[in-house]
Design a protein around this nucleic acid. Structure first.
Length: 363
DNA sequence: TAGATTTGACCATG
DNA sequence: CATGGTCAAATCTA
């Protein structure tokens, strides 16, 4: 298909364009140019990278019927108001999920999304922490090739509210301070991160019994404040992983701070390029600024909501769509002052204003 | 005593 | 058949 060549070319163009704009921005920083012009440049850079992101996402979906057509059907906003994975756009996946659950013990094919949490053991807290939901552990399994067992959790309200959300927590072999969390399905329970008691720190107690035990913390305000404080301390290592169980050849990986790199893993096509520290810092700065306005017109794929807003949502951010991707940001919300934000991101749902109507964009 | 966790067994999947 | 996901009885904890 000629699509292949065209999207690659478009991708290259966008990346080159973004790089050029970043250079311009750097020049502007050294000059006396106005903040407005810098802001414009920044917006254009973000836009450019966002387009590239979208191209990668879209190209990876070629051949997947659920993605090949309805990009225009993307939800208006992929960000759920409560920052939960239970918002509206998961219906299809959710139905699949419920269908699957009609069969006991049958391995479920659910929409999944991953998050990673780094915790700081020096503070006596070694487990990944609140994500705004209450989870009950239902199993633990030694995984072949993995140093640490994998823990399985399901929503506490599974029976009460027929909520079939589950998650798996696996401690990283390479870095034991990192917990990889795989969420499956959506919450259909009424609990939201904003209103419900905080859930237990999911896996710490199970992965390592010496770690803190999951306990609901009724003090949401304190948690929030701690989360916010931590945001300013978090080590600059955010990661975005997109894991789409329905699109296994389509996984995006976005790692930003510590390496200042932006990496997308598109299965067959891996794209990796340096993500300008300048841009990164600008984004962070913008996001943290009290005046930061969440991109209603979404010029940014990278922080669909400002990190501080994420933290307000108990360190969790979700974006989702019927394309089964989710953003999840999970942060330590208790005692660890050093937190790595790791969250999945769905580039396809980041920008409902993405110019798909641009003639020939994907031709 | 109710709810959460642990853990061995069962079963689907590849 | 190996592996991973789930179940459910036993156990723990507040």
């Amino acid at each position: 298909m000629e699509n292949g060549l065209n999207w690659e070319q478009t991708l290259i163009n966008e990346l080159a364009h973004g790089m050029e704009l970043a250079k311009q921005l750097r020049a502007h920083l050294n000059s006396t140019s106005s903040a407005e012009s810098r802001e414009i440049l920044l917006q254009r850079i973000l836009s450019s990278y966002e387009k590239a992101f979208m191209i990668l996402k879209w190209s990876g979906s070629i051949g997947h019927p659920q993605l090949s057509a309805p990009i225009t059907n993307l939800p208006e906003s992929s960000i759920s108001g409560d920052g939960s994975p239970q918002s509206e756009e998961f219906d299809r996946g959710f139905k699949d999920q419920q269908d699957q659950n009609d069969v006991s013990k049958k391995r479920k094919v659910l929409p999944t999304w991953t998050g990673q949490v780094r915790v700081c053991s020096e503070n006596g807290f070694e487990g990944p922490t609140e994500d705004g939901y209450s989870w009950r552990k239902y199993g633990q399994k030694d995984i072949l090739g993995a140093k640490y067992p994998r823990s399985y959790y399901r929503c506490t309200y599974r029976s009460l509210q027929n909520c079939w959300a589950t998650k798996q927590v696996q401690r990283s072999d390479d870095d034991p301070t990192i917990f990889e969390i795989i969420y499956r399905g959506r919450h259909s329970c009424n609990e939201t991160p904003h209103t419900a008691p905080l859930p237990p720190p999911p896996s710490s107690s199970s992965l390592d019994k010496q770690e803190s035990k999951p306990k609901n913390n009724p003090n949401n305000c304190q948690q929030q404040q701690q989360s916010q404080n931590m945001f300013f301390n978090f080590r600059t290592s955010s990661r975005v992983d997109t894991d789409d169980s329905d699109n296994k050849d389509m996984a995006s990986h976005f790692e930003f701070p510590s390496t200042s790199s932006l990496v997308w893993n598109n299965g067959k096509n891996n794209a990796s390029f340096a993500f300008s520290t300048l841009v990164r810092d600008s984004i962070l700065e913008s996001c943290c600024s009290p005046s930061f306005v969440p991109p209603a017109t979404s010029e940014t794929s990278y922080f669909p909501v400002p990190p501080c807003q994420m933290m307000n949502g108990f360190g969790m951010v979700h974006s989702e769509s019927d394309l089964t991707d989710i953003i999840s940001c999970n942060t330590s919300a208790t005692n660890s002052p050093i937190v790595d934000l790791d969250f999945s991101i769905d580039p396809a749902v980041q920008d409902s204003h993405f110019p798909f109507d641009n003639p020939g964009f994907f031709n």
